[in-house]
Design a protein around this nucleic acid. Structure first.
Length: 697
DNA sequence: CAGAGCTGTCATCAG
DNA sequence: GGCTGATGACAGCTC
């Protein structure tokens, strides 16, 4: 990551230059740089090794929130905290001069940088002087007005929606940007002399700022009036100009393309006498002499770059550009997909062939630090946008697009495939991914395998490390504004180690529709690794379902339906996904059911034990009661006999207990009654009591 | 080799 | 009407 450190961190500049953006910048224009910049996360998320701008003392900056006053207004570099001017920030003009002196193509990666360079290159006196004046004011401790709408006003950006979250400016002020940009773009007719003036003005001190600004403003106004009729197209907003049917390079040739690109910057820099970039060729297309003559006209300026490198392209096109010239034509774009990616891949082994047929070896006078950057790192960082711009799943359905080619394009002998190098933003770990070799095996795969190979970038969760279901950011990575950050900077632990043999794949593909037979089949062909996977996981892997089984099963029904609708899935895949979900749900339900059933059984067993214990207790209590009753009966009998032994009749003879009985009356008195006079009811009760007592005994 | 236990799947019903 | 949970029945696998 050392190559991503700020170039001159000591100065605390906003400007930073990376090899990635330098190399990519050869083909990308300003808006894409901004786009890349906007893709970058806050420095705090990346740690000290990935400071985006500024140095340790000023890791980040914010634009002044002050509203524009009369066009561009002025800008100063502020700390994000406190809205205070950064005391360590050098003048912007000084920074630009340093860039030019170092002879490295300056790629504006921050908004202030972008606008500065844009305004300078476009010959915008107001904008340039506003910025330069802001820089001077910044160095002098002054306070200026802010530049508004930088994010949306980026040339050719078309209003990058991702700019909004990252912009420190108020939304209302950002809306002014397109109009302001239009004004600036319309003036970007390439006034080389004016640009030189502006560049020279960069070197001026703050004391000369106002005079120079006024002079530039006057020149700018005059030139604006002069070229007003010639740049009708440029009066349109950039995003509207993008929609015109006129090809981009045609507009370049016509001198109507006013968007600023790195080539503009390069030419701007190379126009300086001391610029070491002087004389560097941009490509096979013969550069007009204006490349070195200081850009005498806007026509030359734009025509040169249109022939060498197209302007205002996105990274997608940059990746797909087969030659040195960007093509807006989708047919041309898709006609040579392999060459396009191979072109990006080629620097891995031969950086000088980065631009095929283009003599760019001298373009970038990389210093040693920059040379340390490996091409894998470059590709890796570029890959962030590869997946942002390229919907492989959609491309896979287009005719003429062979996902296998894509996979091969990213291949290199000693590194991971291009599809998997995106798995982590840590460029140093790129070489750790060695799963790309198996992609080569796809040459012998079945058609179904090839068709679904493009999903591999998304299917890593299947059989691998599954992301949390709540982090289904990839469900709609095109619309999720948070996707880029997560996707780019969170390591996605894709597992690309599984690769079914063609026979196994076919067997799985054929058997997945018959679950009853699949289990028998799967054990016949699966290797040890695949046996660790469940059947659904194997099926999902075979059909390249871009989701893990856990995701399919656990995601909410809304997300599930949204997933099915947003992704291009074949009927087979949809059916399989639904089956997986159904089976997964049922599997969990069965487990719960059996768990509950087991709990019920255990509870019943506990109840039985409890009831048995209670029964025993009751038995013991009953036995104790019987014993007590018998004791009482025995005592009663003893008392009965004792009473009769003591009784005497009128003649003094003992009373026979068989003829008489004791009867208790209601008033508590005890009477001696002959048994013949005992009522039948009393007899029955007495007999029942006797029988019961006999049975109990 | 038979059987118990576990697990997955399907069909069905109910909420 | 679709989804989900619950449950019985069945089959396959392991020990």
């Amino acid at each position: 990551m050392k190559y991503l450190k700020p170039w001159w961190s000591d100065s605390g500049s906003l400007l930073h230059l990376t090899i990635l953006l330098s190399l990519a910048g050869l083909r990308l224009d300003l808006d894409l740089d901004l786009d890349l910049y906007l893709l970058l996360p806050p420095p705090t998320l990346l740690g000290d090794e990935l400071l985006l701008s500024g140095g340790p003392a000023s890791p980040a900056y914010a634009l002044s929130p002050f509203p524009a006053s009369g066009g561009w207004g002025r800008a100063e570099l502020l700390h994000p905290k406190g809205r205070e001017r950064d005391p360590v920030a050098p003048p912007v003009g000084q920074l630009l001069r340093e860039v030019r002196a170092l002879g490295v193509p300056f790629i504006p990666c921050t908004r202030v940088d972008a606008w500065l360079v844009h305004s300078v290159a476009a010959g915008d006196a107001d904008g340039a002087h506003a910025l330069l004046g802001a820089a001077a004011a910044s160095s002098a401790g002054g306070v200026g007005a802010g530049v508004n709408g930088v994010s949306q006003a980026a040339p050719g950006s078309g209003g990058n929606p991702r700019a909004a979250p990252s912009s420190p400016l108020a939304a209302g002020e950002e809306e002014k940007a397109p109009a302001e940009l239009t004004a600036q773009v319309s003036d970007a007719g390439g006034h080389a002399s004016e640009e030189n003036e502006v560049l020279r003005a960069v070197d001026h001190s703050s004391q000369h700022e106002e005079n120079e600004q006024r002079a530039s403003t006057q020149r700018e106004k005059s030139l604006q009036q002069k070229n007003e009729d010639e740049n009708k197209v440029a009066d349109k907003p950039v995003w509207e100009a993008e929609k015109t049917s006129e090809p981009r390079n045609e507009r370049h040739r016509n001198g109507t393309d006013t968007s600023f690109s790195l080539e503009d910057l390069f030419q701007l820099l190379s126009s300086q006498p001391e610029n070491p970039l002087e004389g560097i060729s941009l490509g096979d297309s013969p550069l007009p002499e204006s490349t070195n003559d200081g850009m005498n006209s806007s026509t030359h300026c734009n025509a040169n770059f249109s022939q060498a490198v197209s302007h205002d392209v996105n990274l997608h096109e940059a990746m797909l550009c087969p030659d040195n010239t960007f093509r807006r034509d989708p047919v041309a774009r898709t006609s040579q997909p392999q060459e396009l990616f191979l072109q990006l891949n080629s620097p891995l082994t031969n950086p000088e062939q980065t631009l095929s047929g283009t003599n760019l070896t001298g373009f970038l006078p990389f210093d040693n630090q920059m040379r340390d950057l490996t091409n894998q790192d470059l590709l890796y960082d570029l890959d962030i946008n590869i997946f942002d711009e390229i919907n492989l799943m959609s491309l896979a359905t287009e005719g003429g697009f062979d996902p296998m080619e894509v996979s091969q394009l990213f291949e290199e002998p000693d590194s991971d495939s291009g599809l998997s190098i995106n798995s982590s933003h840590n460029s140093t770990s790129v070489t750790k991914y060695n799963s790309s070799r198996s992609v080569c095996e796809g040459a012998s795969r079945s058609r179904s395998d090839l068709e679904s190979l493009s999903h591999r970038d998304l299917q890593g969760a299947v059989g691998g490390c599954y992301p949390e279901p709540t982090k289904l950011c990839h469900m709609d990575h095109r619309s999720d504004t948070h996707f880029h950050g997560k996707f780019a900077f969170q390591p996605i632990l894709h597992n690309h180690t599984y690769h079914l043999q063609p026979s196994a794949l076919e067997s799985t593909y054929e058997s997945f529709s018959w679950p009853g037979k699949s289990q028998k089949i799967r054990h016949g062909y699966l290797n040890d690794t695949d046996r660790n996977l469940s059947r659904d996981e194997q099926h999902a892997k075979a059909l390249h379902i871009p989701f893990s089984v856990d995701e399919i099963v656990q995601m909410p029904v809304d997300s599930f339906n949204s997933m099915l609708s947003r992704y291009y899935l074949t009927d087979f895949q949809v059916s399989l996904i639904r089956d997986i979900r159904r089976r997964g749900k049922n599997k969990v339900a069965v487990q719960n059911c059996r768990r509950r059933k087991l709990d019920v059984i255990l509870n019943l067993e506990d109840d039985v034990c409890n009831l048995q214990a209670k029964k025993e207790t009751l038995k013991r209590e009953r036995s104790q009661c019987h014993k007590a009753i018998n004791i009482m009966k025995q005592k009663l009998r003893d008392l009965y006999h004792d009473v009769f032994n003591r009784l005497r009749d009128e003649e003094g003879r003992p009373v026979n207990p068989n003829q008489y009985a004791l009867q208790c009356s209601r008033d508590g008195s005890v009477l001696i009654v002959p048994k013949e006079l005992v009522t039948p009811g009393q007899k029955n009760e007495n007999q029942k009591g006797k029988r019961k007592s006999e049975r109990r005994n």
